[in-house]
Simulated assay, not measured.
Amino acid sequence: WRGDENKRGAALLGAPRYTEYLNVKPLPCINCPIGCHRHIRFEYPDGTVLEGNGPEYETIGMMGSNLLVEDLGAVAKANDMANRLGIDTISCGAWIGFLMECWEYGWITPQDTGGLSLKWGDPDVLLALVEQIGTMTGMGGWFREGIRGAARHIGREAEKITVEVKNMDYPAHDPRAVYALGVNYAVGTRGACHERGNPQTSALGGYFPELGQDGPHDRQSPEYAAKTAVIHQDVSVLMNCMTICQFMMGGGGLTLTEIRTAYRYLTGKDVPVEELVKFGERAWQLQRIINVRDGLDRKDDTLPLKMTVPAMVGPRAGKTPTPHDRILDDYYELRGWDRNGIPTRERLESLGLGRFAAFLP
């Protein structure tokens, strides 16, 4: 999260080299026109062959670019190891980068690492730490309570360099490129999730004319950040509730009008698009009520310190999703929450959720 550009890494990790180097073939779900999964077959110098699911975008971002690891074969192997160990490649890559940065600052030593030198870009370090994290051995045991637990264990200034919300690590989408992501992560029910709200797609022209959006707005403007986050969250939760893949609205070309038609065919109920999207809002409000019941409020809707530091070059130069408090205020107002992030009884009543106000302070 401290780098500005990595054109060499992008060329070595991304397409077309990715497709050619790993002998990639699309691996679609049944009847899917997109095929976002990848089947790979790669032979290593020692003659061993890796065949199966290949690393996807987040894995390449967090286990590749995030660590300055440019060895596609190593990233593919790390992905396979993580899959077999049952661990998330986003957090795993984030944790390894965190350890590398702590090593760089001298906050952890060879005594802590068992003699392993945690150098940026080292594929052997990547593979060693995936195994430790997956088995909770060595330094992997530091993460039993997530990255916050590891930061407390290391001490020094470690808590200031973490990039997380509610102890969930940021995925490979930067709010300094799309401001709506900053508030989307901050208010996320389970933390920094890019699949409960996909405002990053607004940078690629993703918008909803059925909801009155006349086109994509400036992705690096605080003026539109909160509204963009709200709309994408409601649509995202709606699609999750209906078990529709979110890629279908981008690469698949599915529209909210077509989802409305499908809903009518399935249920016999003709619901306007605006009312259909309110299903998503109701689910989001219920999730917030659970968070508030469990003690979460504005103090937990945070922006990591690194997200306030702009790039020096490239499209993020001089850009940060700040002032965060102002964007958060805008978001709370749109959601019908008070200044502390608590849903108001009035908004809940308007959505038919008034009975759940009993769970609020």
Rank of each mutant, 00 (worst) to 15 (best):
P110N: 08
G212D: 07
T189M: 07
V130M: 05
G141T: 12
R17G: 01
N291I: 00
E20D: 08
P209A: 03
F279G: 12
D234H: 15
D300S: 05
Y179A: 01
Q213N: 11
D234C: 13
K7T: 13
I259F: 05
Q132S: 12
H217K: 14
L204V: 00
G314P: 08
R288N: 14
M312L: 15
R41F: 00
D46F: 06
K119V: 04
G134R: 15
I147G: 06
D71W: 10
L116G: 00
C102K: 08
K269W: 00
P310V: 12
P361H: 14
T113Q: 04
L85A: 08
L72K: 01
G73E: 06
G73M: 10
L276M: 02
R293V: 00
L296S: 12
P323Y: 12
P175L: 09
R298F: 07
V271N: 04
E210L: 12
G314L: 11
L129C: 04
T113N: 02
T162N: 00
D338I: 06
V75S: 05
Q213C: 12
G141P: 09
R152Q: 13
G106H: 05
L254S: 10
M63C: 06
P361S: 13
P16Q: 09
E349P: 00
G9W: 09
R345I: 02
D46I: 05
W284C: 03
V313Y: 10
E275A: 13
L211E: 08
L353Y: 03
T135K: 15
P55Y: 10
N83Y: 13
N53W: 08
K299A: 04
N291D: 15
C241Y: 02
D80Q: 13
H153T: 11
P55K: 12
I108P: 01
P310Y: 13
E195L: 13
E20H: 04
K166R: 15
G35I: 03
Y170P: 00
I30R: 05
A262F: 09
C36Q: 08
L303C: 04
Y185H: 15
I231W: 03
Q213Y: 11
G61W: 03
P55C: 04
G251E: 12
T48P: 00
Q132Y: 10
D112N: 07
